[in-house]
Design a protein around this nucleic acid. Structure first.
Lengths: 287, 287
DNA sequence: TCAGGAAAGTGAATGGTGTAAACCGTAAAC
DNA sequence: GTTTACGGTTTACACCATTCACTTTCCTGA
């Protein structure tokens, strides 16, 4: 499906829909958990807000197109009403994109949890495979969350992308591997300037709390890995690859296998390849 | 911008717009060159056809949205008239996607031609850089041609993608390198079954005329290279990467550099890196 | 040469879309 | 208890793809 992208760079000269930072991390497990001390009204608003993204997800889970009207209708409202909550269609998209990423990440984590907590390498492979399978199974959500151009895109988006949940998960896994095996990472001085800036003050961050500045080269490795993973998966989702190869997933395993040496995991080739292939089983049903 | 994608798999129960194979290779250099012996009427039709894709490209070259109405208006017609030429909006998209790929390829070739005809490695690097620069400069065209989901998508598309011009160019370059340096390629027996099928009877082909069956492993290498290249570029275009790194292009050069060993080009690192960086100069003006 | 007929194109209509403006009741705030 | 502002609806606009019925134009076959 994909998504209409505004060509004009500046939008919403209007009040811009009195928007609050759409839900701070909000670690509370219950989805309906309201902020402890919040005005009754605030709570109501919050609820509607989450219902909006819920309806949106439900909508495109059942194969329908994501549209303001459809979302509104589904929750017994009329389209313009949504403008009290989001400033534009694009902003709705950004919102659900964030939520999709969050939900998908849980899947990735679950996949990792099929392996022992200290088997970081296997966990990374499992999560990667889960990512691929998810993308192939839900191409529309994938496009929304991972192929939706950022560009100007309201600052709302820039803020959100900054805390992409999935990125956190993957960087975390990779750091665990590194702490265990200490595969070689580039020193800061070896990095090109732009990269050095980027790893020292990451925009698309990563759990870097406990990572010393001198070890930030790890992030560069991470980015390279992410680029490779993204490459295969995007290519597969979009279908610009021989269908038979997509079906078998061989390009995917090849891509990951080729990256193993970088992580100092050559000696585990067979085992990890098995982990990958184990995750490929449930091939996308339709599509 | 991206493009609306039909969710239903079956479309055009109608006559399906009496469609001829939209222009066989048609090697004639003049764009207006009509098929030698063709009915006057046919010629007229052919002309309109090319005017359609021309208008389309002009349209989204000036930043506008691609739409039947707009295209029609631009050529002094009314929207429904276009249905005499294309069966649906999606088909128009596929058509211009093909044309875009063709046009872009010429750019890639031109970039390669800045280097001596026998310096295949440099030519490959130059073309790759040209690809990236083009994608960043014209993200909408890139999305249309390379990120437009194939899936079911009328057989028209399946036929077209089969002769993707750019793929031809890149495979050709890579084969030239291989014939010169004979870097190691997997033997057929080493390939996973699906891959073997794919390289023996390529769907997304490749100039393989003079490539013996035993050497088809080269195609597998090619696909892997394409996957990596696509990964960086798509990621950059879509913006899911630190802007500073996109700006500097470091991820791009890193990705290509990492692939050099596969092509047996380690000994040319410095030189080829210079070639890459030389092509990065014209950074995308707007966006 | 002329009648047929098909191809190309138009206009109006259908059911979508995002978005702007005017309007109103009700719930919160002073 | 009045005022304000929020959440919502109606209406309207400008687009979009697509279909159908209709006309015009030009090629062709007898």
């Amino acid at each position: 499906m994909l998504v209409k992208q505004s060509s004009s760079s500046d939008r919403s000269p209007v009040p811009a829909a009195t928007r609050r930072p759409p839900a701070a991390p909000e670690a509370s497990p219950e989805p309906t958990a309201p902020s402890p001390a919040a005005g009754r009204r605030e709570r109501q608003r919050e609820a509607t807000f989450t219902e909006i993204v819920a309806s949106s997800r439900a909508l495109l889970a059942e194969g329908a197109e994501l549209s303001l009207r459809a979302v509104a209708a589904r929750m017994g409202m009329t389209a313009p009403a949504l403008y009290r909550y989001v400033a534009s269609y694009q902003e709705l998209v950004d919102l659900v994109a964030f939520e999709i990423d969050k939900a998908a990440t849980e899947e990735f984590i679950a996949a990792a949890d099929a392996y022992p907590a200290d088997d970081h390498a296997a966990r990374l492979c499992a999560s990667s495979t889960a990512f691929r399978q998810w993308a192939l199974r839900e191409p529309r959500e994938f496009s929304l969350a991972f192929a939706n151009p950022i560009a100007d895109s309201s600052c709302a988006r820039r803020d959100l992308i900054t805390v992409t949940t999935s990125a956190m998960h993957f960087t975390d896994l990779m750091r665990a591997i590194w702490e265990e095996r200490r595969f070689p990472i580039p020193r800061l001085e070896e990095l090109p300037p732009s990269v050095r800036e980027s790893v020292l003050d990451p925009l698309i961050p990563a759990k870097v709390e406990g990572l010393a500045d001198d070890d930030r080269g790890l992030l560069w490795i991470y980015m390279q890995g992410w680029t490779r993973l993204y490459g295969v998966v995007a290519l597969e989702v979009v279908g610009h690859l021989d269908p038979r190869i997509i079906e078998s997933g061989e390009m995917f395993v090849a891509a990951l296998m080729n990256f193993l040496p970088v992580l100092g995991l050559e000696d585990e080739r067979e085992r990890l390849e098995a982990v990958l292939r184990a995750g490929l089983r449930p091939v996308p049903p339709q599509v």
